[in-house]
Write a protein that binds this DNA or RNA. Structure first.
Lengths: 151, 151
DNA sequence: GAAGATTGAGGCTTCAATCTTC
DNA sequence: GAAGATTGAAGCCTCAATCTTC
């Protein structure tokens, strides 16, 4: 699908194609699809997973999820409405709200985690054994490179 | 960030972490951000790039972009409104609309392509030389595996 | 009836402005 | 004033229903 415009010097074109294909193959434009057959939106699932161990503040959650404060605010309101977490005022800093999963929330999180793991297991199974380590390494390298480019 | 819930048998956990980190690092939740400093939304850019060589139908464009027909319909309306493409009735099949870039659309597409290439060049530059081939391979393997899993 | 395309309703996210608390 | 959080406006996407053309 080359335009004949790109300078093909460094193999960048191949990289682009591979990356775009990946994004589309994973359907990374459709954030609403439930990630693994569970009754939650993708961002809800990520939030729950992130809150499983620790009672983060909204700000901290936003940073980890790389979402806007406003998005997280609404997201958390939903989760609270479903009784999956509780919002507590931080004792030391009245501005912050600390997020703590309820028992129901933790149960759901475990189910999501299991489903996600199952999905990734299928995915891993579809990758030739000898290439798996290389793929994981590549993902890490890429994530790091992207991070570096944004600063 | 392990929950202590996951069975760590096959290295799936590492894979999950690496993948999630990648998605977040690239900000793949925010489809509206202009991809490379150009005045177009991400999906608009992808559509233009896809239409650079061929006059696809909307259905075919939707398939390539892995978007819904309805999304593409609205997307194309916008691009038409900006005079970047024209919608023509297909001569052989009156149901289909064939999409053809205007001169302005092609100019813009070239600019987007250049900007995107520049961005990927920076990204590639941030990857150690000896790992680049492995990374591209890994992306391809992953995309293929994801594709296979959805069927 | 089948297939291409369009329209209406609803969800998720961003940006900007605002409120609260330090 | 700075930082955590919230609210309002707008954009992109999906799903479902509908219109048009084969």
């Amino acid at each position: 699908v080359s335009l004949g415009i790109v300078s093909e010097s460094t193999g960048v074109a191949e990289f682009q194609q591979a990356f775009v294909a990946l994004v589309r193959a994973f359907g990374l434009h459709q954030p609403e699809s439930t990630p693994c057959g569970q009754p939650v939106a993708t961002s809800e699932a990520h939030a729950l997973l992130e809150l499983a161990g620790v009672a983060l503040t909204q700000n901290e959650l936003a940073r980890r999820l790389r979402l806007q404060k406003s998005t997280v605010s609404r997201l958390v309101s939903q989760l609270e409405g479903k009784r999956w977490l509780e919002r507590e005022r931080d004792a030391r800093d009245g501005r912050a709200r600390r997020l703590r999963l309820t028992d129901a929330g933790l149960d759901l999180t475990r189910a999501i985690d299991a489903a996600r793991t199952a999905k990734f297991e299928r995915l891993v199974a579809a990758i030739p054994t000898e290439e798996r380590a290389a793929v994981v390494d590549a993902l890490r390298v890429l994530a790091h490179a992207s991070q570096a480019d944004q600063e």
